[in-house]
Design a protein around this nucleic acid. Sequence first.
DNA 1: CCTCTGACTATTGTTTGCTGAAGTCAGACG
DNA 2: CGTCTGACTTCAGCAAACAATAGTCAGAGG
Lengths: 155, 155
Amino acid sequence: MKLEERLQDRTQWTTAGRCPVERAMGLVGSRNAMLAMREAFYGTTRFDDFAERVGMSPATTSSNLKALTEAGLLERRPYREAGTRTRDEYVLTEAGVDLMPVVLALFAWGSRHAGETPGVDVVHAGCGEAVEVRATCAGGHQLESDDVELRVRSR
Amino acid sequence: MKLEERLQDRTQWTTAGRCPVERAMGLVGSRNAMLAMREAFYGTTRFDDFAERVGMSPATTSSNLKALTEAGLLERRPYREAGTRTRDEYVLTEAGVDLMPVVLALFAWGSRHAGETPGVDVVHAGCGEAVEVRATCAGGHQLESDDVELRVRSR
DNA sequence: CCTCTGACTATTGTTTGCTGAAGTCAGACG
DNA sequence: CGTCTGACTTCAGCAAACAATAGTCAGAGG
């Protein structure tokens, strides 16, 4: 990765919450919060299912779902099954869906580098090929590490 | 995201460290560990620079760099500046470079959804266009959330 | 009205991540 | 030989994340 000249001295601007990576990690930076988002992508919507599938206590489930809802990644929506009362389910918002590249990139990295064979793959539903997460520019060109540059926002 | 039929009942397989996302979060799941990786992408290699730019104490810096090195994301390499003694620097390994999509995806998501304007953009060094992180299949097709499916690994 | 279920909340205690300050250690240089 | 610097390590302590258990609460069904 390259840095624009005036960013070379980065002791100043990287700290103190200026970095988007840092702010993102503040929201989904704990293990269970990220796993809750993973579950949301897997289609989980109910409180007890989040708790069981992530393997976290109800208290942790409650605080994580609340934090993710307040951050705008999940939305509470009332639903009703026949013969039961109205309940709330947690569904992904647009901002939540936007986090999918992060989760898929973690999945891909974990499959390649973190220990034993996972047993589960993420594939393109159409062609069955493995899903990869790549950086592209607006033109659609694939980028390598060296093609990426950090710049101060122009305006 | 879709799930293969035999994965529909996922109370079993999602827990107990079977998921690559979970294993990945075990390594870079803390805020400072991820920020240390961000710094490595920004070109930081020295102990004190990691500490200052991430904003973490030397103790935390030490344990994070050690953990990342043991996990194979960073590598210690001796270097020498004229007139000083030999020192070690921390450089990205191949596995470390592979994590770039995760960091870029967090950067992109944070820029769009996490609060104030970041002031810094990631762009394609060649054309200056913003970098996006997208899921693609091996054929290179861009995938939306609905195009992605989870399957049990065949062999 | 009582029970049952899904969805929580509250309490207690433990573990992990982190900070701040102080100390160590190797070797270049005066 | 003593100092200085970069790169750590050690220690004490705090705060957040988390687990385990128990309790609450709303409403449908009996």
